[in-house]
C-alpha cells in the first residue's frame, strides 16, 4: 500500500469556485458589491454587512509572509521539518499555505518577505495554492 498523502479538501457548493480557480491557475477571492469588503474563506454573502450581492474575482497572487511554525513531527504527505504558514494577500485576507522553493528554516523564512502564489495539482479535482518567494 502506498503511504497516505496529505489531507485534501472536499469542496462544497459555496467553495467550488475557489477550487475551480486554483485548477485554472487563479486565486479567486470574493468582494462585496455594497461595502467593497474583500474576504476569505468563501461564502455567498458578505461577512461584514450581510448582503448576498458579492462577486468573485481573481486576486493578484501577491502576498507577504505573516507568520508560521516549522513543524517537526511526522504528518502523512509531509517530510519534517516543514513550515505551516499564514500569508497576508495584497487584497487583505489571510490564508494558510505552505512555502515552496525556499529552505524551511527561520533564517530563510523572514516575516514580511514578499511571496507569490504557485499552483500545485494534487489530483484531477484538487489543485492547492502554495506560495514562493517573489522572484526578481
Amino acid at each position: 500500500m502506498p503511504e497516505p498523502g496529505r489531507a485534501l479538501p472536499q469542496p462544497t457548493p459555496e467553495t467550488q469556485h475557489f477550487w475551480d480557480g486554483t485548477k485554472a491557475g487563479e486565486l479567486r477571492l470574493q468582494r462585496c458589491d455594497d461595502c467593497r469588503h474583500v474576504y476569505f474563506p468563501p461564502r455567498p454573502f458578505c461577512p461584514k454587512c450581510g448582503t448576498r450581492k458579492v462577486s468573485v474575482f481573481a486576486a493578484s497572487g501577491k502576498a507577504i509572509l505573516d507568520s508560521y511554525v516549522i513543524h517537526h513531527r511526522k504528518v502523512p504527505g509531509f517530510e519534517p521539518p516543514y513550515a505551516i504558514a499564514v500569508v497576508k494577500l495584497d487584497e487583505g485576507p489571510r490564508m494558510m499555505t505552505n512555502i515552496v522553493e525556499c529552505p524551511q528554516t527561520p533564517e530563510a523564512l523572514q516575516l514580511d518577505m514578499p511571496l507569490e502564489v504557485v499552483f500545485a495539482q494534487q489530483n484531477d479535482a484538487i489543485t492547492l495554492p502554495f506560495f514562493r518567494p517573489t522572484r526578481g
Partner: peptide, 30 residues
C-alpha cells in the same frame, strides 16, 4: 478528526497541521 468538507478541512488541514501544537503557536512569531 477534521471533516475534509469543513472550512478547516478545506483551508487549513491540506497544509500539514496535526492538532493544537502545530496550529496554536502560529501567531507567536508575528
Amino acid at each position: 478528526s477534521v471533516p475534509p468538507s469543513s472550512l478547516n478541512g478545506q483551508f487549513e488541514q491540506p497544509f500539514g497541521p496535526m492538532g493544537p501544537p502545530s496550529l496554536f503557536p502560529i501567531p507567536v512569531l508575528r
